[in-house]
């Protein structure tokens, strides 16, 4: 026993180092999966407050630019309203579409240059934000909510090792998956493309709506370069992402208003 005490006294520096370092590696490896990433709660009061203050200050510098963007988006929305009104007039019956709602939010912290990037937004549980809701920008898909506190929420950016969303080619309706390889924040990688599908540079890729996180048909990007297949039946292509992650500010949290019902159905399936 006395030897043990002496051993600990003698090597306390190395022992403490090993202890702390293994704690860090444990924390780190735990954060390396999609669902556990949700546990990291940046969305806690202190950091939220600090980033909100900073965002309040820096927000002024780009006001003009973002006003223009918003005005543009407004215009597009008006167009859409007009189109939809026409459709409503011509068809009187209820559409069978899935119902999605939008919560406007502001990005208060966001990175693009790490291997795994997160977005922090200023809407939280009290505003109705819940994990697994989608985040879209006016230009396209941006991320998926993983952790929420009362007034803030963290989201996995598409620029993350574990961000993987189901997409489809607008022209052909063929499904594929989108991931990010970590090199350039402007480009994503479309995987699992059926080999028979002819892809042309500039083809538009949109969300498939299969995951129910994002509505169908939200812009994701355009094909930049097709990667020649190497013997596999599933091909890849480089995607020019439509969202500029480096200047993400105004975003919308989208959620399916029928989510509870769908979850209950899924749970019922599991129990049987």
């Amino acid at each position: 026993m006395r030897n043990l005490v002496r051993f600990v006294q003698k090597y306390h520096f190395v022992l403490l180092f090993l202890l702390l370092e293994s704690l860090c590696v444990y924390l780190l490896s735990n954060s390396h999966s999609y669902h556990r990433a949700a546990l990291i709660n940046t969305s806690n009061a202190l950091t939220g407050e600090v980033y909100q203050t900073k965002s309040n200050i820096t927000g002024y510098f780009s006001l003009g630019f973002h006003n223009d963007l918003l005005a543009l988006e407004n215009a597009q929305l008006h167009d859409r309203i007009a189109e939809l009104e026409e459709m409503v007039d011509s068809t009187s019956h209820q559409s069978d579409h899935v119902h999605f709602r939008h919560i406007p939010a502001k990005v208060i912290s966001n990175t693009v240059h790490f291997r795994n990037n997160y977005i922090l937004i200023n809407k939280g549980r009290l505003d109705g934000v819940k994990p697994d809701m989608g985040i879209i920008s006016p230009d396209g898909v941006a991320g998926i909510v993983t952790g929420v506190s009362d007034h803030y929420a963290t989201a996995l950016s598409l620029l993350h090792r574990y961000a993987r969303i189901s997409v489809m080619f607008r022209k052909s309706g063929q499904l594929a998956n989108l991931t990010w390889t970590g090199e350039n924040y402007r480009y994503g990688l479309v995987e699992d493309i059926p080999a028979h599908l002819k892809i042309v540079e500039g083809d538009t890729v949109v969300t498939s709506g299969h995951s129910l996180i994002f509505p169908e048909g939200i812009m994701v990007g355009t094909i930049k370069e097709y990667i020649e297949p190497a013997g596999s039946s599933l091909n890849k292509a480089i995607l020019n992402m439509s969202t500029d992650f480096n200047m993400l500010r105004q975003v919308y949290v989208v959620f399916n208003s029928d989510q509870q019902e769908i979850d209950q159905l899924r749970k019922a399936n599991i129990h049987e």
Partner: peptide, 11 residues
């Protein structure tokens, strides 16, 4: 905590 990472900078 501020970078939304866990154990990275600490390590």
């Amino acid at each position: 905590i501020f970078s939304s990472t866990s154990g990275l900078h600490a390590g």
